[in-house]
Protein backbone atom coordinates (compact mmCIF):
# COMPACT_ATOMS: atom_id res chain seq x y z
CA UNK A 1 0.00 0.00 0.00
CA UNK A 2 2.67 2.42 1.09
CA UNK A 3 4.43 2.21 -2.22
CA UNK A 4 1.53 2.93 -4.52
CA UNK A 5 2.40 6.41 -5.80
CA UNK A 6 -1.13 7.18 -6.94
CA UNK A 7 -2.75 6.33 -3.63
CA UNK A 8 -2.23 9.89 -2.40
CA UNK A 9 -4.59 11.19 -5.08
CA UNK A 10 -7.38 8.88 -4.04
CA UNK A 11 -10.64 10.61 -3.20
CA UNK A 12 -12.14 9.22 0.00
CA UNK A 13 -15.61 10.04 1.23
CA UNK A 14 -15.85 11.46 4.70
CA UNK A 15 -19.53 12.45 4.78
CA UNK A 16 -21.49 10.79 1.98
CA UNK A 17 -23.97 13.19 0.37
CA UNK A 18 -26.06 12.28 -2.63
CA UNK A 19 -28.35 14.73 -4.38
CA UNK A 20 -30.44 13.69 -7.38
CA UNK A 21 -28.39 10.59 -7.99
CA UNK A 22 -25.16 12.64 -8.10
CA UNK A 23 -22.41 12.09 -5.59
CA UNK A 24 -21.65 15.33 -3.77
CA UNK A 25 -19.96 13.71 -0.79
CA UNK A 26 -17.75 15.69 1.52
CA UNK A 27 -14.44 14.00 0.73
CA UNK A 28 -10.83 14.41 1.73
CA UNK A 29 -10.53 16.73 -1.30
CA UNK A 30 -13.37 18.85 0.09
CA UNK A 31 -11.74 18.81 3.51
CA UNK A 32 -8.50 20.16 2.10
CA UNK A 33 -10.30 22.78 0.05
CA UNK A 34 -11.85 23.96 3.31
CA UNK A 35 -8.45 23.77 5.00
CA UNK A 36 -6.88 25.76 2.15
CA UNK A 37 -9.46 28.51 2.36
CA UNK A 38 -9.40 28.53 6.15
CA UNK A 39 -5.61 28.79 6.38
CA UNK A 40 -5.25 31.34 3.54
CA UNK A 41 -8.08 33.57 4.79
CA UNK A 42 -7.10 33.01 8.41
CA UNK A 43 -3.52 33.95 7.69
CA UNK A 44 -4.47 37.13 5.84
CA UNK A 45 -6.96 38.03 8.55
CA UNK A 46 -4.84 37.43 11.63
CA UNK A 47 -1.61 38.70 10.06
CA UNK A 48 -3.27 42.07 9.57
CA UNK A 49 -5.14 42.19 12.89
CA UNK A 50 -2.58 44.58 14.36
CA UNK A 51 -3.05 47.00 11.46
CA UNK A 52 0.44 48.17 12.27
CA UNK A 53 1.92 51.17 10.59
CA UNK A 54 5.17 49.31 10.92
CA UNK A 55 4.32 45.74 9.92
CA UNK A 56 5.37 42.68 11.88
CA UNK A 57 6.61 39.53 10.18
CA UNK A 58 3.25 38.01 9.36
CA UNK A 59 1.82 41.36 8.29
CA UNK A 60 4.85 41.89 6.06
CA UNK A 61 4.19 38.57 4.33
CA UNK A 62 0.51 39.43 3.86
CA UNK A 63 1.37 42.88 2.50
CA UNK A 64 4.12 41.48 0.32
CA UNK A 65 1.77 38.95 -1.30
CA UNK A 66 -0.81 41.69 -1.79
CA UNK A 67 1.67 44.05 -3.42
CA UNK A 68 3.24 41.21 -5.40
CA UNK A 69 -0.09 40.40 -7.07
CA UNK A 70 -1.09 44.06 -7.32
CA UNK A 71 2.17 44.85 -9.13
CA UNK A 72 1.79 41.81 -11.36
CA UNK A 73 -1.77 42.74 -12.34
CA UNK A 74 -0.93 46.41 -12.90
CA UNK A 75 1.99 45.40 -15.09
CA UNK A 76 -0.01 42.76 -16.95
CA UNK A 77 -3.37 44.44 -17.43
CA UNK A 78 -2.78 48.08 -16.54
CA UNK A 79 -4.68 50.18 -14.04
CA UNK A 80 -7.98 49.33 -15.68
CA UNK A 81 -7.31 45.71 -14.82
CA UNK A 82 -7.11 46.45 -11.11
CA UNK A 83 -10.83 45.74 -10.72
CA UNK A 84 -9.88 42.08 -11.10
CA UNK A 85 -7.47 42.27 -8.20
CA UNK A 86 -9.65 40.33 -5.73
CA UNK A 87 -10.05 37.58 -8.30
CA UNK A 88 -6.34 37.23 -9.12
CA UNK A 89 -5.33 37.53 -5.48
CA UNK A 90 -7.88 34.88 -4.51
CA UNK A 91 -6.66 32.54 -7.25
CA UNK A 92 -3.04 33.04 -6.29
CA UNK A 93 -3.58 32.57 -2.57
CA UNK A 94 -5.83 29.56 -3.12
CA UNK A 95 -3.41 27.76 -5.43
CA UNK A 96 -0.35 28.68 -3.39
CA UNK A 97 -1.91 27.55 -0.13
CA UNK A 98 -3.28 24.36 -1.67
CA UNK A 99 0.14 23.57 -3.17
CA UNK A 100 1.95 24.25 0.08
CA UNK A 101 -0.55 22.28 2.17
CA UNK A 102 0.01 19.40 -0.24
CA UNK A 103 3.65 19.36 0.79
CA UNK A 104 2.74 18.00 4.23
CA UNK A 105 3.03 14.21 4.36
CA UNK A 106 -0.39 12.49 4.33
CA UNK A 107 -2.08 15.70 3.20
CA UNK A 108 -4.22 15.74 0.10
CA UNK A 109 -3.15 18.07 -2.71
CA UNK A 110 -6.23 19.83 -4.02
CA UNK A 111 -4.42 21.13 -7.10
CA UNK A 112 -3.35 17.64 -8.16
CA UNK A 113 -6.89 17.03 -9.41
CA UNK A 114 -7.38 17.96 -13.05
CA UNK A 115 -11.02 18.84 -12.46
CA UNK A 116 -10.05 21.45 -9.85
CA UNK A 117 -7.38 23.11 -11.97
CA UNK A 118 -9.63 22.92 -15.02
CA UNK A 119 -12.48 24.56 -13.13
CA UNK A 120 -10.14 27.36 -12.05
CA UNK A 121 -8.90 27.92 -15.63
CA UNK A 122 -12.44 27.89 -16.99
CA UNK A 123 -13.29 30.48 -14.35
CA UNK A 124 -10.40 32.65 -15.61
CA UNK A 125 -11.09 32.25 -19.31
CA UNK A 126 -14.83 32.56 -18.72
CA UNK A 127 -14.24 35.85 -16.92
CA UNK A 128 -12.10 37.04 -19.83
CA UNK A 129 -14.74 36.15 -22.42
CA UNK A 130 -17.71 37.52 -20.47
CA UNK A 131 -15.99 40.76 -19.46
CA UNK A 132 -14.44 41.14 -22.92
CA UNK A 133 -17.81 40.99 -24.66
CA UNK A 134 -19.42 43.13 -21.96
CA UNK A 135 -16.75 45.82 -22.31
CA UNK A 136 -16.05 45.77 -26.06
CA UNK A 137 -19.10 44.06 -27.52
CA UNK A 138 -18.41 42.45 -30.85
CA UNK A 139 -15.09 44.29 -31.11
CA UNK A 140 -13.74 41.87 -28.55
CA UNK A 141 -13.35 39.45 -31.46
CA UNK A 142 -10.54 41.64 -32.75
CA UNK A 143 -8.24 39.84 -30.30
CA UNK A 144 -8.27 37.11 -32.93
CA UNK A 145 -7.21 39.49 -35.72
CA UNK A 146 -3.93 41.16 -34.80
CA UNK A 147 -3.52 44.53 -36.44
CA UNK A 148 -0.90 44.93 -39.16
CA UNK A 149 -1.35 41.44 -40.55
CA UNK A 150 -1.69 41.25 -44.38
CA UNK A 151 -5.21 40.34 -45.53
CA UNK A 152 -3.92 37.20 -47.21
CA UNK A 153 -2.54 35.86 -43.96
CA UNK A 154 -5.47 36.94 -41.83
CA UNK A 155 -7.49 33.66 -41.99
CA UNK A 156 -4.40 31.67 -41.07
CA UNK A 157 -3.35 33.99 -38.24
CA UNK A 158 -6.90 34.21 -36.94
CA UNK A 159 -7.32 30.46 -36.85
CA UNK A 160 -4.03 30.15 -34.98
CA UNK A 161 -5.18 32.82 -32.53
CA UNK A 162 -8.50 31.07 -32.02
CA UNK A 163 -6.83 27.73 -31.41
CA UNK A 164 -4.40 29.32 -28.97
CA UNK A 165 -7.29 31.05 -27.19
CA UNK A 166 -9.26 27.83 -26.94
CA UNK A 167 -6.27 25.93 -25.66
CA UNK A 168 -5.76 28.43 -22.85
CA UNK A 169 -8.02 26.73 -20.31
CA UNK A 170 -6.42 23.41 -21.18
CA UNK A 171 -2.82 24.60 -20.97
CA UNK A 172 -3.50 26.61 -17.84
CA UNK A 173 -5.12 23.70 -16.03
CA UNK A 174 -2.85 20.93 -17.28
CA UNK A 175 0.29 22.90 -16.39
CA UNK A 176 -0.71 23.23 -12.75
CA UNK A 177 -2.21 19.76 -12.48
CA UNK A 178 0.71 17.98 -14.16
CA UNK A 179 3.32 19.83 -12.15
CA UNK A 180 1.71 18.99 -8.84
CA UNK A 181 0.89 15.44 -9.84
CA UNK A 182 4.30 14.63 -11.28
CA UNK A 183 6.14 16.19 -8.36
CA UNK A 184 4.17 14.25 -5.80
CA UNK A 185 4.47 10.99 -7.71
CA UNK A 186 8.24 11.46 -8.08
CA UNK A 187 8.58 12.19 -4.37
CA UNK A 188 6.53 9.14 -3.52
CA UNK A 189 8.49 6.89 -5.87
CA UNK A 190 11.87 7.98 -4.55
CA UNK A 191 10.81 7.73 -0.92
CA UNK A 192 9.32 4.34 -1.77
CA UNK A 193 12.77 3.28 -3.01
CA UNK A 194 14.24 4.31 0.32
CA UNK A 195 11.75 2.14 2.21
CA UNK A 196 12.00 -0.90 -0.02
CA UNK A 197 15.80 -0.80 -0.31
CA UNK A 198 16.14 -0.28 3.42
CA UNK A 199 14.22 -3.49 3.94
CA UNK A 200 16.86 -5.47 2.00
CA UNK A 201 19.50 -5.39 4.75
CA UNK A 202 22.78 -3.59 5.27
CA UNK A 203 23.63 -3.26 1.59
CA UNK A 204 20.16 -1.97 0.86
CA UNK A 205 20.41 0.63 3.60
CA UNK A 206 23.68 1.83 2.06
CA UNK A 207 22.08 1.91 -1.35
CA UNK A 208 19.05 3.77 0.01
CA UNK A 209 21.17 6.83 0.66
CA UNK A 210 20.98 7.90 -2.96
CA UNK A 211 17.17 7.93 -3.25
CA UNK A 212 17.03 9.52 0.20
CA UNK A 213 19.24 12.40 -0.98
CA UNK A 214 17.08 12.60 -4.09
CA UNK A 215 13.94 12.79 -1.95
CA UNK A 216 15.41 15.60 0.13
CA UNK A 217 16.43 17.53 -2.99
CA UNK A 218 13.04 16.88 -4.62
CA UNK A 219 11.25 18.20 -1.54
CA UNK A 220 13.09 21.48 -1.87
CA UNK A 221 12.32 21.59 -5.57
CA UNK A 222 8.66 20.84 -4.90
CA UNK A 223 8.39 23.83 -2.58
CA UNK A 224 9.78 25.95 -5.39
CA UNK A 225 7.32 24.39 -7.85
CA UNK A 226 4.45 24.97 -5.41
CA UNK A 227 5.18 28.69 -5.40
CA UNK A 228 6.17 28.87 -9.07
CA UNK A 229 2.98 27.26 -10.34
CA UNK A 230 0.82 29.60 -8.29
CA UNK A 231 2.87 32.48 -9.67
CA UNK A 232 2.62 31.25 -13.28
CA UNK A 233 -1.13 30.76 -12.94
CA UNK A 234 -1.50 34.30 -11.61
CA UNK A 235 0.76 35.81 -14.30
CA UNK A 236 -1.12 34.08 -17.10
CA UNK A 237 -4.42 35.16 -15.57
CA UNK A 238 -3.18 38.75 -15.65
CA UNK A 239 -2.13 38.38 -19.30
CA UNK A 240 -5.48 36.91 -20.30
CA UNK A 241 -7.32 39.62 -18.39
CA UNK A 242 -5.34 42.16 -20.37
CA UNK A 243 -7.16 40.94 -23.50
CA UNK A 244 -10.49 41.43 -21.79
CA UNK A 245 -9.64 44.89 -20.49
CA UNK A 246 -7.89 46.30 -23.53
CA UNK A 247 -9.46 44.32 -26.36
CA UNK A 248 -7.35 43.59 -29.42
CA UNK A 249 -3.59 44.01 -29.49
Amino acid sequence: MANDPTHQFQIQKIIPIEIGGMDFSFTNASLFMVATVASAAGFLYFATSQRGLIPGRAQSVAEMSYEFIAGMLREGAGNAGMKFFPMVFTLFMFILTANLLGMFPYFFTVTSQIIVTFALSVFVVGTVVVYGFYKHGIHFLSVFAPSGVPKVLLPLVSSIEIISFLSRPISLSVRLFANMLAGHITLKVFSGFVASMGALGALGVGGAILPLLMTVAMTGLEFLVAFLQAYVFAVLTCMYLNDAVHGGH
Binding site: I11, T27, V37, I115, A119
Partner: peptide, 13 residues
Protein backbone atom coordinates in the same frame (compact mmCIF):
# COMPACT_ATOMS: atom_id res chain seq x y z
CA UNK B 1 -15.51 12.21 -8.11
CA UNK B 2 -15.97 15.28 -10.31
CA UNK B 3 -19.39 16.48 -9.16
CA UNK B 4 -18.36 16.41 -5.53
CA UNK B 5 -15.05 18.15 -6.22
CA UNK B 6 -16.70 20.81 -8.38
CA UNK B 7 -19.41 21.49 -5.82
CA UNK B 8 -16.98 21.82 -2.94
CA UNK B 9 -14.57 23.87 -5.03
CA UNK B 10 -17.38 26.28 -5.90
CA UNK B 11 -18.42 26.48 -2.25
CA UNK B 12 -14.94 26.94 -0.79
CA UNK B 13 -13.48 29.07 -3.57
Amino acid sequence: TYPSQLLWLVITF
